[in-house]
Amino acid sequence: MAPTTWLDKLEEELNIDVDWMDPDFLVQMQPTIRFHDLTSNQNFVDIQMGHPSNAALLRDTAREVQNERTAAPDAHGSKETHPLWLAIYTRMAVRMCKKVVDLIQGRVLLQTSPAQAYDTAATLAHARLYDAEFARVGIPRARFCIKIPCTGPALIAASVLQAEGIQTLGTALFGLPQAMACSQAGCLSISPYFNDVRAHDDRSVWPAVRDPAVEHPNAARLVQILDLYRRQYAATGKRQPLVKNASFVSQEEALAAGEMGCQSATLFHTLIQDLAAHPYTDAERPGGIAAAAATRPKPAADVPFYKDRPAPSDRLAPLLAVDPLNAADPTTVAVGYDAVVAADYLADGGKPLDAAIAADPVAKDRLDAALTLFIACEKRSQDKVEAALASL
């Protein structure tokens, strides 16, 4: 028998999602693993949109949408609501999802325009456009989810979408208030970033620690988010968002997500390959035997995720009372469980959430950095779409 790998072990503890839209990679990995969900953002959509295998599809999509606008402009939404390039981009992104949806077990995920992250109406309109395009290619709502940036106005849109039966994920999430707001919006999932997005290109801002579950400066916030949802489920019986931990740099960070009890880990293709090549032993795991003893298998798919979930282990429990990212005092939590549960973050158009983010310099800076990155990626895709239009 082949030795158990870090990828095998992690799949025992949580669902492994893939953060890469390349169908060839999914086929290549199928003898090893069939991924649960396939997530993406403007960066990964742009990369795949520029792949030579999609050149003809992009031109055909551009021609098709342009012709529809010419034939019946009023039937496809106003140009102010859906600019031509965005309509083409959206249909193209969904068509690329169509190429991979049968290669995974669960949902494909696409993200609303980051440039409209503070505009409820625009975020809602883009999500509904995705919904219409998924219906066009025959992907039902049970097989997709819309990623919504965790700003106040965008999460207002998420609450409307959830009421309409369109599942959402709160993304670019960096603190407890954003997590509570996603619960209040009824989001299916959240995607807390374990690292600042800048750490992927600039290792000087990456905390390269040996035992990320207890040593990484963001570990405390993640443990507190998971405990928030565990306690909320126990207190109310209401479904809480599933935690899809994301933005890992190292294999050790991915293993930490398993120990913490996340529902899934969203992994880049390169990290997946590294995990699949790494034989697993309890002794070699970050945190060693104590960390291995603190993990538990993921619950069965038909069991509510937070039902009977235990409190954090002895290794992780101290993280409930500290916040290394709290510049005022890292030995304390600036906004704890009682305060976030009492707050209505989606009141007044989401202004309380935006105020809470503004009061947290780390969350505000990292949210701004993530949106800036994705806006730049979206602009590159817009350029590709407009070049395709020009070539017709």
Score class of each variant (00 low, 15 high):
4 T>C: 08
13 E>K: 15
14 L>P: 01
16 I>T: 04
18 V>I: 15
18 V>L: 15
20 W>R: 09
24 D>R: 14
24 D>M: 10
26 L>S: 01
27 V>G: 12
32 T>K: 14
35 F>L: 00
38 L>W: 11
41 N>I: 04
44 F>S: 03
45 V>L: 07
46 D>G: 12
46 D>I: 01
46 D>V: 06
47 I>A: 15
58 L>V: 12
60 D>G: 09
60 D>T: 07
61 T>V: 01
62 A>M: 01
66 Q>F: 05
66 Q>G: 09
70 T>G: 07
71 A>W: 02
72 A>C: 07
72 A>P: 00
83 P>D: 01
84 L>F: 04
87 A>K: 00
91 R>Y: 13
92 M>F: 11
100 V>M: 14
102 D>E: 14
107 R>Q: 15
110 L>W: 01
114 P>G: 07
119 D>T: 08
125 A>K: 00
128 R>E: 05
132 A>L: 08
134 F>G: 02
140 P>N: 13
144 F>L: 10
150 C>T: 15
150 C>Y: 07
156 I>Q: 07
157 A>N: 02
158 A>G: 11
160 V>Y: 07
170 G>I: 03
171 T>I: 01
172 A>V: 05
178 Q>M: 01
187 C>V: 01
190 I>Q: 01
193 Y>L: 13
193 Y>Q: 12
197 V>D: 00
202 D>M: 13
202 D>F: 10
204 S>F: 08
214 V>E: 12
216 H>I: 06
216 H>E: 12
225 I>A: 05
228 L>G: 11
232 Q>V: 13
235 A>M: 08
243 V>S: 03
250 S>T: 13
253 E>P: 00
253 E>D: 05
255 L>I: 06
263 Q>E: 12
263 Q>L: 10
268 F>K: 09
270 T>Q: 14
273 Q>R: 11
283 A>F: 04
293 A>F: 05
293 A>D: 14
294 A>Y: 06
297 P>V: 06
300 A>T: 10
304 P>C: 11
312 P>W: 04
316 L>R: 02
319 L>V: 09
321 A>P: 09
321 A>C: 11
326 N>P: 04
330 P>T: 06
336 G>T: 05
340 V>A: 07
343 A>R: 07
352 P>G: 02
355 A>N: 06
358 A>I: 09
364 K>E: 13
366 R>H: 11
366 R>Q: 10
372 T>A: 15
373 L>W: 06
377 C>P: 03
378 E>K: 08
379 K>D: 15
380 R>I: 02
386 E>R: 00
386 E>K: 01
389 L>R: 02
